[in-house]
Amino acid sequence: MSTLQVAKTVDAKGLSCPMPIVKTAQAIKEMPSGALLEVLATDAGSQKDFVAWAKSTGNELVEQTTDAGVFRFILRKK
């Protein structure tokens, strides 16, 4: 488990594509630059989606882990 201090968590467990990314994009809009966002998702596609989304939007994917079928992403707002 990471000890990073996250400012906000988006629980997207059970949501299918593209809702985890949509909820993430909505949440990060309201956060200050440099703040950390944690996202929890179960959609298998989200593993590649978050890499692509971070690359395209310039937000940094700091950490990506899996625990018991739940994917956890830590993103730093651009």
Binding site: C17, P18, I21, V22, A25, W53, S56, T57
Partner: peptide
């Protein structure tokens, strides 16, 4: 709708 939401999330 999925294509739309994905594109919107990418700006």
């Amino acid at each position: 709708a999925v294509l739309t939401a994905g594109a919107a999330a990418l700006g």
